[in-house]
């Protein structure tokens, strides 16, 4: 068995989210160093506040300012902070019930060590130097020796309320394509295209994924296909994709390689775009150092008869 292929894969995206009126007021308040909660129908004050009562699902919007001081209701010492977490040095995760609130907020507590943290300890918000209207406007909590801090007396009406947040997210993976696709990629490195035959229906799948999607059984018998093939259907691309070094218009086609029972897709080159047609016979064009064909070009053979590829559209 050839070596298992691996490659780093980063999935990274900024989530742009709009805010409801209560979330907007809360995050705008954080920007202004004010913590706002919301009162439920039974009179409890929720911090962080939500748009709907978590018990009755009623819409709630009565904002209440609470203190930036509070009490730890539970904690967990994090000896090895991870990417994106509020502090880069060891810290305690805490749920904090702020003075004036009935529920607890999750955040980090900056403390010298686990011996300095206990449930019931008093803490105070440490504001971030730069604030934009996000939960991270609270840099963290810090130990605090005292009673409830006085609210600022600010109501809900902060001008220039934030209406949305942009939250970047990044996850790192080590991707492995599995046995069948590894074999396919290894063969491509030798400029060969291999498919796999279903032991039941005898169809040859290219690229192989290890299973016959019709029969639901494993494929294993390797079959070399191509290199030539037939355009079974195509489209003309008129809009240039970002970072793509190909002039438009160009043709993207389904190509049934000789011996394959499934068409793969690739760009057609070496022929004006308006001369590409169903049945056109093509062959791969490799470029130096590439791990797959750059594009396919006409072979000059007569076109294939429709009957020979009509099942492969």
């Amino acid at each position: 068995m050839p070596e298992v292929l691996k490659a780093p894969l980063v999935v990274e995206f900024p989530f742009t989210r709009s805010l409801g009126p209560v979330q907007s007021a809360f995050l705008t308040g954080l920007r202004e160093r004010v913590v706002l909660g919301v009162r439920t129908t039974d009179g409890r004050v929720l911090v962080p506040p939500v748009e709907y009562d978590p018990v009755t699902a009623e819409e709630i919007d009565e904002l209440v300012e609470v203190a930036p001081t509070g009490t730890v209701t539970t904690w967990a010492w994090n000896p090895a902070p991870r990417r994106g977490q509020p502090l880069a040095t060891p810290f305690a995760w805490v749920l904090v019930r702020l003075d004036g609130a009935d529920t607890a907020l999750l955040h980090a507590l900056d403390a010298p060590g686990p011996d300095a943290v206990r449930t019931g300890m008093r803490v105070r918000v440490r504001w971030a130097a730069e604030r934009s209207g996000a939960i991270t406007d609270i840099a963290c909590f810090a130990p605090y020796d005292g009673g409830p801090d006085r609210p600022t007396g600010h109501g809900r009406a902060f001008p220039d309320a934030v209406t949305g947040i942009v939250v970047p997210a990044r996850l790192d993976y080590t991707y492995s394509p599995g046995r069948a696709q590894s074999d396919y990629i290894h063969a491509l490195a030798e400029r060969r295209t291999v498919g796999e035959r279903c032991p039941s229906c005898r169809k040859v799948y290219v690229p192989p994924r290890g299973a016959c999607p019709t029969c639901g059984i494993a494929t294993a018998e390797q079959v070399e296909v191509g290199p030539r093939g037939t355009v079974t259907t195509f489209c003309i691309v008129n809009i240039k994709a970002k970072n793509l070094d190909v002039e438009v218009p160009y043709v993207y086609a389904h190509i049934a390689l000789d011996g394959a029972d499934l068409a793969l897709h690739a760009r057609i080159g070496g022929v004006p775009y308006d001369q590409v047609r169903m049945g056109l016979r093509v062959e791969p064009v490799w470029t130096e150092g590439a791990r797959y064909p750059d594009h396919y070009r006409p072979t000059g053979e007569p076109d294939a008869a429709y009957e020979t590829y009509k099942e492969l559209l």
Partner: peptide, 14 residues
């Protein structure tokens, strides 16, 4: 995604 995910509290921490 508004109040918790931006702090990246991992599964073990919670």
């Amino acid at each position: 995604p508004y109040y918790v995910a931006p702090l990246w509290p991992d599964a073990v921490a919670l």
